[in-house]
Amino acid sequence: MNDSTEHPQYETLLHDALHAHVQQSGGDAAGTCLAGLADGALRVARRRQRLARTGVGVAAVAVVATAWVAVADGAPFRAHTVQPAAEGGTGRAAAVSLLPVTSSKERACTPGSGGYTVHATATGPALCVRADRARGMTDVRVTSAKAEKSASDGAWQVEVTLSPADRTRFAAFTGSLAGSPAPRNEFAIVIDGKLWGRPYVASSITGGRFEIVGAYVGDLTSTTAHDLARRLDPGR
């Protein structure tokens, strides 16, 4: 019989030893916590054994790692449970729309009016941005997204590359905005219902790439830029 189907000897020995320690120490709080950890480890080991017998891969089991810290006698026992971070992406890409801006006013939008409110920051006032969804690009497909610092001003940004099919749509879309008076020469970058940027267009963008810098340049930090890139490209 191989290791995957052997009864969990190590965990059983650890379980019995810790429970013996608790009995010898009179069942103090620290010992009780350690015994609880041993019980949990044994349950996990037995579950792994059952899964191995039914042919379920170990990789499909979400294991919770328990960390504990030994402290001096008389000090309270402290333990915490750490859930491992998910490997790879979330599996679901964020919903992206690129919409032509129709108006931009320096005030928050009236609730229920359909506009996108940009809250005031250190770099700019509050704005109410309205966009035309009917003339925009919805269900935009992103092939890659990466967080990086701008070579020109050092601000964090996310560079987005569109799918080949959407590059053609994007070139026609941006070409229709070029030459219009502000703010109609801008497009709203809407991700999961939130406005993340409103770049202006000088001419048709044919390369299928654009940058997200936030509602105002300098809004993104390293953390928010990397988080946004992962949401746009969950396979990273």
Rank of each mutant, 00 (worst) to 15 (best):
M1T: 09
N2H: 09
S4F: 15
T5N: 06
Y10A: 05
E11A: 15
T12H: 12
L13A: 13
D16Y: 14
D16F: 11
A17P: 02
A17M: 07
L18E: 11
L18C: 05
L18H: 01
H19S: 04
H19A: 05
A20F: 09
A20H: 11
A20E: 13
Q23I: 02
S25Q: 07
G26I: 12
G27T: 06
A30M: 01
A30W: 01
G31R: 02
A35P: 01
A35F: 13
D39Q: 10
D39V: 13
A41L: 09
A41Q: 12
L42T: 06
A45F: 00
A45D: 13
A45H: 03
R47E: 14
R48P: 04
Q49Y: 00
R50E: 11
A52L: 06
V56L: 08
G57N: 10
G57Q: 15
G57E: 15
V58P: 02
V58D: 15
A62F: 09
A62N: 12
V64S: 15
W68C: 00
V69I: 13
A72I: 06
A72V: 05
F77R: 01
R78P: 00
A79K: 11
Q83I: 07
A85H: 04
E87Q: 12
G91F: 12
V96G: 00
L98V: 08
L99V: 05
P100I: 02
S104P: 00
R107I: 13
C109Q: 12
T110W: 04
P111G: 12
G112E: 05
S113D: 14
G115C: 08
V118F: 06
L127N: 00
R130V: 04
T138E: 10
D139P: 00
V140C: 10
V140N: 03
R141N: 04
A145K: 06
A151C: 03
A151T: 14
A151Y: 06
A155M: 07
A155K: 10
Q157F: 05
V160K: 01
S163P: 02
A165N: 09
R167H: 04
R167A: 07
T168V: 15
F170V: 03
F170D: 03
A171P: 05
A172S: 14
A172G: 12
A172V: 05
F173I: 10
F173C: 14
T174F: 04
G175L: 01
S176L: 04
S180K: 15
P181F: 07
A182Q: 01
P183W: 14
R184Y: 03
E186I: 03
F187P: 01
F187I: 03
A188C: 05
A188Q: 10
G193N: 12
K194Y: 04
K194C: 00
K194T: 11
L195G: 02
L195C: 08
G197C: 04
R198T: 11
P199G: 09
V201L: 05
V201C: 12
V201N: 06
G207I: 00
G208I: 13
R209D: 10
R209C: 07
F210C: 01
F210A: 01
E211Y: 00
E211W: 03
I212R: 05
A215E: 13
Y216W: 09
G218I: 12
D219M: 07
L220E: 00
S222C: 05
H226G: 08
P234M: 11
G235S: 13
G235C: 08
